[in-house]
Design a protein around this nucleic acid. Structure first.
Length: 179
DNA sequence: CGAATTTGACCCGCGC
DNA sequence: GCGCGGGTCAAATTCG
């Protein structure tokens, strides 16, 4: 049922203006008023500007997993060994599709319903080995067309897919999240 | 056939 | 101390 034949090119950010010059533009994020980026972690204060409804606050405790210690695989290290400063990015974009294709391959590993929203939040994970980047998408109950994508972690490998100019945006994102 | 996706169950941290 | 919420994983299923 989630089969959406829509292949969003890059009109997500451009709410208006930027008719075609958007392609291959090295503009920064600040250029998009509809997109808000929040970096940081621990506080968990997500920028809910605009909607101010979703309660995304709380701890980022990822201890939930590790229920199958079948092997001594390298697990439970982040948030335990050291205060792994995991950069968290929250993007609020206006699009009809939840999954914004940034060029990476994501595998959905969970879906939970939000209390303040009749929709559910989707959890994605980078399929790349060694790349434990997580991404979660949450739709605002108020605005169905509003989607909040939260990125956790950074990719350590080149993009597999070639996205029009999204690559540039991703590049900018990494720079912004640089710690 | 392989990979990706789905749903349910389980666990952890915090609140009361 | 118990309950709630949130988050993750695992197995089964489906799609390509």
């Amino acid at each position: 049922m989630e089969s959406f034949p829509i292949l969003f090119p890059t009109d997500h950010f451009s709410s208006s203006s930027s008719p075609s010059s958007l392609s291959s533009s090295s503009a920064s994020f600040v250029r998009y008023p509809n997109v808000i980026a929040a970096h940081g972690f621990g506080s968990g204060s997500l920028a809910d500007a605009g909607a101010g409804e979703s309660k995304l606050s709380g701890s980022v405790h990822g201890g939930g997993g590790d229920q199958a210690p079948t092997d001594g695989l390298t697990k439970k290290k982040s948030a335990k060994e050291k205060k792994a400063r995991k950069p968290r990015f929250a993007f609020q974009t206006r699009s009809q599709v939840d999954v914004l294709d940034d060029g990476y391959r994501w595998r959905k590993y969970g879906q939970k319903a939000v209390k303040n929203s009749k929709f559910a939040r989707s959890y994605y994970r980078c399929t790349h080995q060694g790349c434990n980047v997580k991404k979660q998408v949450q739709r605002l109950s108020r605005d169905e067309g509003m989607v909040v994508t939260t990125y956790e972690g950074m990719h350590t490998h080149p993009i597999q897919k070639q996205t029009d100019n999204f690559e540039d945006i991703l590049n900018q994102m990494q720079i912004y999240a640089n710690f």
